[in-house]
Nucleic acid binder design. Structure first.
Lengths: 230, 230
DNA sequence: GAACTGTAGATTGTCAACAATAGGCGATGT
DNA sequence: ACATCGCCTATTGTTGACAATCTACAGTTC
């Protein structure tokens, strides 16, 4: 499905995709704020390219829903409402649950390999928790979940989840929410990993559900005190 | 969320999106075959625009996964393998199940309104079955499911499902499969509608699962005899 | 005859100039 | 003082031209 395309294909990926990836990363890092307009000329200059390729990249991000386009006015970073947060985490729960089932059905080896990757991410996460590097923690949090979904081997699920992960990072960063209870963060992910390793389908689903519900509670609670639109 | 943007905003939607919608429709109707290259100059001419806006639209469809882009070679209609079919229907099952839960949780009025829309689609479908208009049947089939998901009111779920619906139509058309048992088609959808109306969550999930599994069986069986790549 | 090389054609990738539109700002009139 | 009208600037939308790259084919050599 995702063909290796032969060895050493230098820069084989389309330009628009490369630019889109860079922009997405900058957006989730909060370099662009929600509601902010993307000035095509300025950004094109910064990325050492011209408006043509940049506009193609912007269309990709519009399709993802990270940006919104208003005709004759330009593209803007999507402002996330509380309703959006609820949506995002509802869909994340659905996707992860589906991925969990697919992964468990895919056989013990697949599960084992995935657990191996997840363990490393949790170790890194614990390190960053000690350093209190929130940016890195948010990244690793999403990397954990993305890796989890990737384990299922369903390319469409992965593609869908990548957008959701980006939006989740926007939620966390843009609402300027630090993780409320940092101590349970590693613990919760470890719990999911343990249940996956044990193959306990039922409890795994419940754990994912709890994980998402907790996140929504934290995010919506903190955004209410910040007067974010409902 | 999806703002009406005021009354009478003539052609308010961005150009790239309009072009992308037109192209997607042409692709699912089989005007472009899988694997076929999209010649930018030719298509731009046909759509009475230039290569710039067209390329922006192509990027949107690449992001959806309907087209694939190879650097310095162009974009091509994605060729669906049997593995792809399994993926698409697995994700569809997950999305529809999620939508079903959300819809039932959204209250009786929402359910009732959605059922009203679904009933009309089923009536239309029965009509087209009588006429044996396969193209129209495929369209209504997807319209039924899209309307079902839309009932949940989750914009991200809707967006995700629109792509899946397009890919499903490509499966049906491109594999040149007529619906194998046309008589049960209306019946199966009516069954889903009945269970939704009755609010029988458990049976609804099972019905959706059966519906998808049956579709995969039909599609994979017919593509095997057609020597499609596994 | 097979393999390799160089050339030609077509197609995509990129860019810069031009056209069109929206929103801001000041002038004007009531 | 307030509202309205009209201009002005900044930004986007569109186009055509140019550069880079790939594929196919013919010619050459072993």
């Amino acid at each position: 499905m995702t063909a290796p395309d032969g060895p050493f294909v230098l820069e084989g990926r389309p330009t628009a995709q490369l630019i889109a990836d860079q922009l997405r990363e900058q957006i989730v890092q909060g370099i662009f704020r929600p509601g902010q307009q993307i000035n095509e000329s300025v950004i094109a200059g910064q990325l050492r390219t011209s408006r043509g390729p940049l506009r193609e990249a912007l269309q990709r991000l519009c399709q993802e829903g990270i940006l919104v386009s208003h005709r004759n006015r330009g593209v803007f970073v999507h402002e996330l409402s509380i309703q959006d947060i609820r949506e995002i985490y509802a869909v994340r729960e659905a996707v992860e649950s589906t991925a969990a089932d697919a992964l468990l059905d895919a056989g013990a080896k697949r599960v084992k390999d995935t657990c191996q990757l997840l363990k490393k991410i949790i170790r890194d996460m614990a390190k960053q928790v000690a350093l209190s590097d929130w940016q890195a923690i948010a990244r690793l949090d999403m990397e954990f979940h993305t890796t989890f979904v990737a384990g299922a081997g369903n390319t469409r699920l992965i593609r869908i989840y990548q957008t959701l992960a980006a939006e989740s990072r926007m939620c966390i960063l843009n609402l300027e929410v630090s993780y409320p209870r940092i101590d349970v963060l590693v613990e919760e992910h470890q719990n999911i990993l343990d249940l996956l390793e044990a193959g306990d389908r039922e409890e795994l689903h419940k754990a994912i559900k709890r994980h998402m519900q907790k996140a929504v509670e934290d995010l919506t609670a903190s955004s209410e005190e910040m007067h974010i639109a409902n």
